[in-house]
Simulated scan of single mutants.
Amino acid sequence: MPSPPAKPVTCVRGALALERAPSDAPLALALDQAQAGELADLVAKDLAGFVAGAGDLDLCMVAAHYDPAELLRPGWPLHEELLQLGSRAPGRRGGRVIAFGTHDGTLPGALTPSPALAEGPLRLLPFVLSGEPEDVAAVSDALEELLLETGMAGAGTALLAQEAFGLSVEHARYLTIHDLCAMTAMQYEHAGLAALWPVVETALLSPGREAWLDSPPEPLLRYAGGEVQIAMLSPDAWRRRYAGNEEDRERLATGYRHFEARQRQFAALLQAHAIPVTFSHCRDASDPHEELL
């Protein structure tokens, strides 16, 4: 049976990634419109330097920086918001540079970064490149091959971002959304969270599919229908699944507390990625999998 045709590439989703050094200096989350235009011009120049065809596409970006979890959400809402706002901008399509900054301290649409997620070491300025499908596809393929290895931002771009946002920038580079997924997967692994990433990845890249985390001693959870269910186990149900023949009450109590903390950690991470989470109580279930179906 022939495979279904691939979906046309309608835009390139990417970001200018700023790796920041620890600092107590005041931080600006977004720039005003004049600074946004200046930064966008530099970004457009950088991208055209990687792939000549990028200069023939419309660049639309917001001069605000976000946590990776704010970009890596089902449906790519930040990039979609940029596409929608950019589509309303005046001018003939092809080679436009469209920048969004603050007006009276406020960003347009749903572009406001979350202050609660502003302290991470990696900050991202999202952008989209759009145009004719065949042109977008060619630029997309080229950037997917180039950026992760050679996508350093120009010195002027990095300096402007550092000074305007008040960041202490150690590295400034460009990433596609798929590069960012790969980088985040590695970060999850280094943080001891590798077991959760396949669930997040399914929600991002294959939201119609189902994914389970069923790997003791990790919590049991299921992704389906756009949300995650986490199995909530009573102490006895947890002991049957995770503790084997352990009899020491203090060890059991400590193990159960660690398990509950891990559940809360996973729920918080999933919610940061805007993946809805519900808890399914499985106090009396001999097989908690049944409660999640």
Rank of each mutant, 00 (worst) to 15 (best):
A261C: 03
M183N: 12
Q271M: 09
Q84M: 05
S114K: 02
L47M: 13
F279M: 11
A153G: 13
G131H: 11
F279C: 05
L31H: 00
C282P: 04
R239D: 09
G101P: 02
H65Y: 05
V200K: 08
D32N: 13
P133H: 09
M1D: 08
W212T: 12
A21C: 08
Q187G: 14
D24S: 06
A21K: 11
V51L: 02
L111K: 00
A28Q: 01
C60Y: 09
T102D: 01
S3N: 12
S234Q: 00
E145T: 13
M61W: 07
M232E: 06
E163M: 07
S206H: 12
F279S: 09
E291V: 06
R241P: 01
F165C: 14
V136N: 14
T112I: 04
T278W: 01
H171A: 15
Q229H: 07
T184S: 09
T254Q: 14
L159V: 06
L167W: 02
P77I: 04
E19C: 07
A44V: 06
R92Y: 01
R209M: 04
Q162R: 15
D46C: 13
E145K: 06
T150K: 10
A17Q: 00
L233D: 00
G156D: 07
G226K: 07
A243S: 14
R241C: 12
P216G: 13
L72K: 10
Q35I: 05
A272Q: 15
A195S: 14
D214Q: 06
L213E: 06
R173W: 05
D287T: 05
E227P: 09
L193M: 13
G156P: 03
L78S: 04
H289N: 10
L180H: 06
P108N: 12
H178I: 14
H289V: 07
E81Y: 00
H79F: 09
R13G: 04
F266G: 00
